[in-house]
Amino acid sequence: MIPELGKYAGAVLSSYGVSLALLAVIVWISLRRSARVKTALEEIEKRRKSDG
Rank of each mutant, 00 (worst) to 15 (best):
M1G: 13
P3L: 02
P3A: 02
P3G: 02
E4I: 07
E4R: 08
E4V: 06
L5I: 11
L5Y: 05
G6N: 04
G6A: 02
G6Q: 03
K7A: 11
Y8W: 05
Y8A: 12
Y8G: 01
A9N: 03
G10Y: 09
G10P: 01
A11P: 00
A11V: 13
A11D: 08
V12Y: 06
V12P: 01
V12A: 03
L13Y: 05
L13F: 05
L13W: 03
S14C: 13
S14I: 08
S14A: 08
S15V: 02
Y16V: 12
Y16P: 00
G17V: 03
V18G: 04
V18T: 15
S19K: 12
S19I: 06
S19G: 08
S19W: 04
L20T: 12
L20G: 04
A21Q: 08
L22F: 11
L22G: 05
L22Q: 13
L23W: 03
A24E: 04
A24W: 05
A24G: 06
V25F: 13
V25W: 08
I26V: 15
I26D: 03
I29T: 07
S30P: 00
S30G: 07
L31N: 10
R33N: 06
R33W: 05
R33P: 01
R33D: 01
S34E: 06
S34K: 14
A35C: 04
R36E: 02
R36T: 05
V37D: 03
K38V: 07
K38C: 06
K38Y: 09
T39E: 14
T39S: 14
A40N: 02
L41W: 06
L41Q: 09
L41N: 14
L41A: 04
L41C: 10
L41K: 05
E42P: 01
E42S: 12
E43K: 14
E43H: 14
I44K: 06
I44A: 14
I44C: 02
I44R: 13
E45F: 05
E45W: 02
R47D: 06
R47K: 15
K49L: 09
S50I: 10
D51W: 15
G52F: 02
